[in-house]
């Protein structure tokens, strides 16, 4: 897979940007690059890149994140170090942008610099299982809203259709024509299709440009087979 110096992940709220950004940064690092991951999410106060801080630091990946992420302070501020990532051209940068147009707004201040360097990929993360991007028209609307909010046009699509741990290989396969149609409507290529490692293993050879993901897990979620009882309402 080809990489530009800066890779930006934007998309609909909850489409999976953070998990993909973490995995992408780790893949770049595993290939021997110096990598910095910047969390520019000013929208979501929970479930942040900071949850993976120890893993990232252990692998030698730099993390730029708001001082207030995962703290009890609801202050949507941008980390000052983010400028250094955009200006410093000797490292690979992965940028995790906040959801929707509201999240992408924060990117605007870096756009002139990103455009002038012109060594970036702006990726639209798509999850067809999300209720507000179920149709190509809806996904296209979100895509255009984000572009107009941050003034940076997308360069490719990342298909991340999933239902969390309940995702089946069939769910991913069923999403391919959808991603393809969005690709045709926008003229943007599908850079990759993401799937959790186990699902990805079952999809090997069936999906082009498959990108296996390790998912951050949360300890309060049930172990397999102990899910919440069905309550008859």
């Amino acid at each position: 897979m080809e990489h530009k110096r800066l890779t930006l992940f934007a998309g609909h709220y909850g489409s999976g940007k953070t998990n993909i950004a973490i995995n992408y940064a780790r893949a770049l690092r595993a290939a021997g690059n110096e990598v910095i991951l910047a969390d520019l999410d000013i929208v979501n106060p929970y479930f942040r890149t900071k949850d993976a801080e120890d893993t990232l630091k252990g692998e030698g990946i730099g993390l730029i994140v708001s001082d207030y992420a995962n703290s009890n302070v609801d202050l949507p501020s941008m980390p000052k170090e983010a400028y250094s990532l955009v200006e410093r051209r000797d490292v690979m940068g992965v940028l995790d942008i906040g959801g929707d147009d509201r999240g992408a707004l924060a990117l605007g201040r870096y756009v002139p610099s990103i455009l002038s360097e012109n060594d970036y990929e702006m990726l639209f993360v798509l999850n067809r299982a999300r209720p507000l991007t179920r149709t190509v028209d809806d996904a296209l609307e979100v895509l255009r809203e984000i572009e107009s909010a941050c003034s940076l046009p997308f360069t490719a699509i990342v298909n991340n259709t999933n239902l969390g741990p309940a995702t089946t290989p069939e769910d991913v396969l069923a999403s391919l024509p959808f991603a393809q149609e969005l690709s045709e409507r926008t003229g943007l290529p599908v850079k990759m299709t993401c799937a959790e490692k186990k699902t990805a293993a079952a999809l090997a050879g069936k999906v082009k440009d498959l990108f296996p993901l390790s998912i951050l897990t949360l300890y309060y979620m049930e172990k397999e087979g102990t899910s919440l009882g069905k309550t008859n309402l």
Binding site: Y13, G14, R130, P131, L163
Partner: peptide, 9 residues
């Protein structure tokens, strides 16, 4: 069909 949602959504 199943969809993937945040609790608030």
């Amino acid at each position: 069909e199943k969809v993937m949602m945040k609790g608030n959504e």
